Simulated scan of single mutants.
Amino acid sequence: MIVNILHFSFKDGTTEEEKAEALAAMRRTSTVESASYGTVGQDLRLPDDGFTHTYCVGVEDLDALERYMHDPVHIAGDFVIIPRLGRLSAHRLSDDLDPEMGSKVTALHERKVAKYPEWGQLLDSIPS
Rank of each mutant, 00 (worst) to 15 (best):
V105D: 09
E16L: 09
Y37R: 13
G13A: 02
T15R: 04
K104L: 11
I75C: 01
I82K: 01
P127M: 04
Q42E: 08
W119V: 00
S9K: 11
A114I: 05
R111S: 14
W119H: 14
G77K: 03
A114L: 14
K19Q: 12
V32T: 06
D43M: 11
T54C: 09
G77S: 03
V73C: 15
A90F: 02
M69V: 13
D95W: 01
P47I: 03
T29M: 11
I75W: 05
M101Q: 08
A90N: 00
H7Q: 14
G120W: 11
E100V: 14
A20I: 09
D71S: 04
V113F: 15
N4A: 13
V32L: 08
T39L: 12
K11F: 06
I75T: 05
P117F: 03
A114D: 06
F8H: 07
G41N: 12
D12W: 09
L122M: 07
D98Q: 09
Y68N: 02
H74F: 14
D71Q: 00
L123C: 09
G58V: 14
Y68D: 04
L44I: 07
D43E: 15
H7P: 00
L65W: 10
T54V: 15
G50S: 09
H109E: 09
Q121M: 11
A24T: 01
L93D: 06
V57D: 07
S128G: 07
D61G: 10
H70T: 02
V59M: 04
H74L: 05
Y55N: 08
T52Q: 14
L44S: 03
S30D: 06
I81S: 01
H7T: 07
L65E: 05
F8T: 11
T52W: 10
P72H: 00
I81D: 00
H53G: 13
G102D: 11
S94V: 01
G38H: 11
A114T: 13
A25D: 06
Y116T: 05
V80R: 10
I126L: 05
D49G: 05
Y68A: 10
S30F: 02
I2F: 10
T52L: 08
I2D: 08
E110W: 13
C56S: 10
S9I: 09
L93A: 07
E110R: 15
P47W: 08
A64D: 02
D78I: 01
L123Y: 11
D43P: 13
V57H: 02
E60Y: 08
M1H: 12
S89R: 06
A35S: 11
Q42Y: 04
G50E: 10
V80S: 01
R84G: 01
S94I: 06
L46R: 14
K115T: 15
A25K: 00
P99E: 14
E17C: 05
L65R: 13
V105K: 09
V3R: 14
P72F: 09
L85W: 02
K112P: 05
D96I: 01
F8E: 12
P99K: 06
